[in-house]
Every structure is written in C-alpha cells, then in structure tokens.
Design a protein around this nucleic acid. Structure first.
Lengths: 211, 211
DNA sequence: GGATGTGAATGGATTCACAGCT
DNA sequence: AGCTGTGAATCCATTCACATCC
C-alpha cells in the first residue's frame, strides 16, 4: 500500500479527539459507524474509512467501530501512547497562549522547558516550568530529553533558535514565525501561519461584494 | 478559466508578505522574477506563476515582476486595499495572544471590539479596545461595522457565540475552538487547529523510530 | 535572450461502488 | 441485511514544457 498522506494523519488526530470525548460520554460499550462519525465531524464517511484503511482494519463489518478500541489504536498510530517532552521558544504573547493551551496537555504533550532571551524572564518559573536563556538550549534539551520544539519567537530570531535546537537533537519543530526556516531533511517542520488564514476571509468577502 | 483554489489564495498572501518586506528593503525600482521569489520562499517557480495567472498578468516577459506593482495588485486581489474591522470573541490566553499579534495589524485587519463573558473583564478597555458582554454582539457588530470575527472561546461556548455573530451580520469567521461549527453557506468559515499540527510531529517521530 | 503565462501531462487525494465479512 | 475495507474512477492541484512577448 501507499504511504499515507500527511493530511490523513491530521484527520486521524481529529477522529481521535472526537473519540476521546465520545468514550467519556457514551461509555466504552457503544459502537459508532463511519456515517455517524462523519456527520459529527462534517466529513465524508468514505474519507474516514479510507484514512483508517492506510493503517489497518479497525471495525467490524455490519456493526461499526468500538470507540474505545479505535481510540487506543489511533493513539498508538499517532505516537500518543507515550509522553512527549516539548520546549517552547519565545515567551511573548503567543508563547504565553501556547503554554496555557489545554489541547496539548490532553494529548500528553508536555512543555518541560521554556527559552526566552529577556533578562527579566530568565530564571523565573512558570507553573513549574523554568525559563532558560537560549544559550542553554543544547544542555537543557539533552538533559530533559526534549524531542519537539515550538518556535514562537520574532521572525528575525527564528532561524538562529532553530539551528540551536537542531544541533541539540530536536527532530520536530512547530514554527509560528512567518518566515521560511531552513532545516535538514531529517527534521520535520510544520508551519502555522495565522494571518494567512485571515486573508482567505478578506478575499472571500471582497470577491462576494464584487459579484 | 477555472475558479482559483483556496490554497492559491493562501499562497498569494505569502507572496504579498514577502513583497511588503522586499519593497522596503530593495526599493521599488528593482525587479524580481519567479525564480528568485521561489527560492526565497522555498517554493516552485511554476506554482507561483500559475497562482498569479488565475488573476491576470502581472509581469513583463523577459524581465520579471516589478515588486511594488505586484504588491499593490496582490493587496487588491486579496481584499487588503481597504481596512477591515474585526471582533475577537474570547479574551483568554489565546485571545490575548491574537490581540497582541502584529501580523494582523500590518495587513490593516483591526480588532475594534472584544467580547468576553467574564464579569471582571466586561467594561474594561484593552489598548483602546473595549470589552463587551456577548449579549451585546448584535448591537456592537452593527454599530462598528464589523465584517470578520475571530472565535477563541472554549469549545462549549463556540456555537452559541457563532450564532450570535451570524445573526448580527458577520460573514466570515476564523475559529480556533476545536469543534465543528455549523454555519450557513453564505458564511465563510476557516478553522485553525493547533494540536492537530503537533500530532503530525509525534506521528513523524514515532514512525521514524520504528524504521 | 530571457522570463512570463498557460494548455497539457502528471501526480495525489477524494469519492465512488461494490466485494467481502459478520 | 448492514457496514467495513478497498480497488477503480474521478476530481483537483502541481509540475512541465513551450509558445509568447518584451
């Protein structure tokens, strides 16, 4: 079979989140089929089944899926069966928001270190997590066994921080700075571009008014 | 010609941001060609030309593009020639970050009202922008001529807020709550799902280790 | 000569339709 | 009978290649 597309992985994460809630509400004994699931998530049942089929067989023909089982399988597939240690680079507004964001902790993605170069922040502790100078990235990443980094520093500083992270052994980066980061091919990079999303809306609104 | 795909619109926004900086640095008299542009943005020059071709002809054959002219055309296309009034719903951590985020203001996307139901926040003013109770959405949206809303409230509250926004006349919504919002077809909805992005990384890291 | 603009070709993802299992 | 799982068909985006124009 072919390698599952990146976008299917993202959708598996959506299915998982739904199932986490579903199991809590309905209990583990219920079943759910692709059609119900699709309706709840505003998707196409064919797509859900296809996405799952990249990874194996999880349902019973004629019945549907057992939500608890499917949830566990998805956790396994997505690498969420284990706990991950993250670091957050940049404790400005966006950094603060990301640190407080509940969605991560639910998935056992733990921010265990923060890096920021503001002298008044360095050395402080934020809800149990210490803020370090970026100079200490190499040591701290290794000591705390950090696998994933979130880059939320100003664009000018982003490449330098990224280089340090990679040198220290980080292999996956979620970047919020609106610039192109250069990373070697063995590092996985995802970019999140907030203003791009909004501009889609302004385009939509203005093209509406012209027609 | 066919209707340009959504994803091309997003890329136009990326080109525009690059050009905004480029014009400031290099001045308006320089030229830039699709290859240089592609190299700077880590893209394919064919794609850039194709994206632009959905909207017209912007370059000179044999020369390239005049950056200032292209920038202005892109602003026009993307609906950024005018100023937009936005409201922000939810002034928690994420809301705070989005409010402070510079990327919006650069594009003349102005947050002119904030809605939050915390009694200690209502009535306060935040850098010149007033915080209102969600009950006042209808009145305020109309009075301030708000076109676009950012939804950054907890998932439980998101649909109710969205309904109010739409009833008040909002036609475009950027949603950060990790749930499916129901909106009528004349409303444009974009969803931003932060934890989904991170889960792509955990998948990548665990599938690496297995091979 | 040199870079754009674009129809055609390729490649991938979504959707379909149905075989296969319970 | 009913729903999954999946090859095939369709649809859409990306890439290519070259005609076009300065």
């Amino acid at each position: 079979m072919r390698q599952p597309p990146d976008i299917s992985i993202s959708r598996l994460a959506v299915y998982l989140r739904f199932l986490e809630d579903f199991v809590k509400e309905k209990g583990p004994d219920s079943t759910i089929n692709s059609e119900e699931l699709a309706k709840s998530l505003d998707m196409n049942p064919h797509q859900i089944r296809k996405d799952l089929s990249y990874f194996g067989k999880f349902g019973e023909r004629g019945k549907g899926y057992r939500p608890e089982e499917l949830r566990d399988k998805l956790r396994q597939i997505l690498g969420l069966a284990k706990k991950w240690n993250l670091c957050l680079c940049g404790m400005g507004n966006l950094g603060n928001a990301l640190f407080a964001y509940q969605g991560f902790r639910q998935m056992r993605l733990d921010i265990v270190a923060i890096f920021d170069n503001a002298p008044d922040k360095i050395g402080k502790t934020f809800k149990g997590v210490k803020i370090f100078s970026p100079e200490r990235i190499s040591r701290v990443v290794k000591q705390l066994n950090i696998n994933i980094a979130i880059v939320a520093v100003p664009p000018m500083a982003a490449q330098a921080v990224t280089d340090k992270l990679i040198a220290a052994g980080v292999r996956a980066i979620l970047n919020f700075a609106p610039i192109k980061l250069n990373v070697p091919s063995y590092v996985k990079l995802r970019n999140v571009d907030l203003s791009m999303q909004l501009i889609n809306l302004t385009y939509f609104l203005s093209s509406c008014q012209n027609t």
